[in-house]
């Protein structure tokens, strides 16, 4: 893919991000990386324990939202950030994700929630693309 896996889009009050992936697993990975980038997270080290999660949703858009919300919950309640994502699609709307959970040092931007506003995962020549609006 020649284009950036994610990029910030102008939004008057909140945060918006366009994210791309060659398939659903990569879209989820890039969305997580993009959200953490927009959150401006810094970790205390690069070391951390491996954690995993299995998620399922009625459709792909909901899976994307549920996945990102899972990470936001960890960031807020356990003061951690995540990296080294490995995602495997079990079914079209069910995934297994593993990643390293690392103690948070600072976070520049508080993302409150992942919205469904105009959220559609579209098929492009290079794979999948979605535009996500975050409430901040």
């Amino acid at each position: 893919m020649g284009e950036m896996p994610y990029e910030e889009i102008e939004h008057t009050a909140d945060l918006s991000m366009r994210v791309r992936g060659k398939d659903m697993a990569q879209l989820l990975k890039h969305a997580a990386e993009g959200m953490l980038h927009l959150s401006d997270v810094h970790t205390k080290s690069s070391e951390g324990s491996k954690v995993s999660v299995e998620l399922q949703a009625p459709d792909r858009e909901q899976l994307l939202v549920v996945w990102l919300e899972e990470l936001l919950f960890g960031i807020e309640t356990r003061s951690v950030a995540y990296r080294d994502f490995e995602i495997r699609m079990v079914e079209d709307t069910r995934c297994e994700a593993s990643m390293r959970e690392i103690e948070l040092e600072s976070i520049g931007k508080h993302i409150k929630a992942v919205t469904f506003h105009d959220l559609r995962i579209i098929v492009t020549q290079e794979g999948l693309e979605a535009t996500i609006v975050f409430d901040v």
């Binding site: 939004h11 008057t12 009050a13 909140d14 919205t115 469904f116 506003h117 409430d135």
Partner: peptide
């Protein structure tokens, strides 16, 4: 008013 999500602010 300004852009939000769902409803405008």
């Amino acid at each position: 008013m300004h852009q939000g999500y769902g409803f405008p602010i």
